[in-house]
Nucleic acid binder design. Structure first.
Lengths: 208, 208
DNA sequence: CCTAAAAACTGAACGGTGCCAAGATCAGCG
DNA sequence: CGCTGATCTTGGCACCGTTCAGTTTTTAGG
């Protein structure tokens, strides 16, 4: 029907029948929409529009919307882990490393709150459907755990417990800040790093 | 057009043109659907169906879906605060009260996870649109804060900080358990109360 | 190189959703 | 009684996720 196989868009760009790299383009567009318009605007149809393709095209690359969101979330977890690692490099003391890791975690959540919310969205929390996501998501936990496990005389069970406690504090605080249920500036330590340092101080004795 | 003004349903019940108490009926139906079918099934149209009314009827009582959800969430916060208070009655020691409050908080989250997620849903987190919700939501924070503030020589700023730390730990843990990112049973203390007691122990020294 | 199978994409449709404007009904009050 | 305002219905809009039959392009095998 269309012997030319090229279509025109409003902006005049030529589009081939085959996009060629639709999958990464969709993921990129997803992050952009997430950043600019929020998670409510993140629909498959909007993604199709943004990549210049019809609504059904994404189904060649993702079984359903959840699978696409899981892929976006996985990218997010990778970036989160990277940010944490980078932030802690150069620190050798256990306490300093922990503080850096947590601060990076919370900073990431606050700075990419729509993405962070997606990463911990209930729709994706059933990891049985997204096995690779489960692996990636465990990375940030592992980073904290590793620091605690490297101490002398570290009891494995005690380490697991402390890791969970720290992660909970950190995750909860991130959540509360994102939801505007807490105003971090009402504390003397005006920024997140200061607050974290103070919070870690609360159980510093037990971490030694 | 309909001179009788009564309609028949499949089950044969007579329905008046005016429901009479639609607002509370909607809220009740919402909690039921939330409990039985999850938050994804909670649509205005489903609520209308459940209360035997047409799709547009709810708009006489709520400006939009968010306003209805906010009302449901507010009921949830009230029940949460009640559960916390009841769970802590009889305890006088600060540490025991804190432990009870937190345990009740987490138990509520785990036992009503769909409702809890709604209560902390991002859609509702912009409290400017739901002023009464904001008040009710602050209750659980106030309960923890009050215990800490009643200590001798309690520095107000330090109290605020500790309250936030405890609340974060508690909220984060609840979130992680709900999302199945943590298996509480892998800790010696098999239940939530035991874990909380141990966690509070981490900064017990600072709470005295 | 040619062809057949596989993959990518289109176009149209289905049922569901939130929301809205217009009208019908009803309760309470002058 | 008639009026008014609140409540509810009817019908419709735009959007969503998903499916399906069919078309186009790429890829793999001879």
């Amino acid at each position: 029907m269309n012997q030319n196989s090229a279509r025109e868009t409003a902006c005049g760009k030529k589009l081939k029948y085959h996009h060629g790299a639709l999958r990464p383009a969709l993921l990129e567009a997803a992050e952009k929409i997430l950043l600019e318009d929020g998670i409510d605007a993140l629909s498959l149809r909007a993604l199709a529009r943004a990549t210049g393709v019809t609504q059904a095209a994404p189904y060649s690359h993702f079984r359903d919307k959840d699978e696409l969101l899981a892929a976006v979330a996985e990218q997010g977890f990778q970036r989160l882990a990277l940010a944490m690692v980078e932030s802690a490099t150069g620190q050798t003391a256990a306490r300093a490393r922990i503080e850096r890791l947590i601060t990076a975690y919370i900073r990431f959540a606050v700075g990419n709150d729509q993405l962070f919310r997606l990463m911990f969205s209930p729709a994706l929390s059933d990891m049985r459907n997204h096995p690779t996501l489960a692996m990636t998501a465990g990375k940030s936990y592992a980073l904290i755990s590793a620091v605690l496990a490297k101490r002398e005389n570290a009891d494995p069970e005690e380490t697991r417990f402390q890791t969970l406690a720290i992660w909970s504090l950190c995750h909860g605080l991130a959540q509360l800040i994102m939801d505007d249920r807490v105003n971090i500036e009402q504390f003397g330590t005006a920024d997140i790093a200061g607050f974290v340092r103070r919070a870690v101080g609360l159980f510093a004795a037990q971490l030694a």
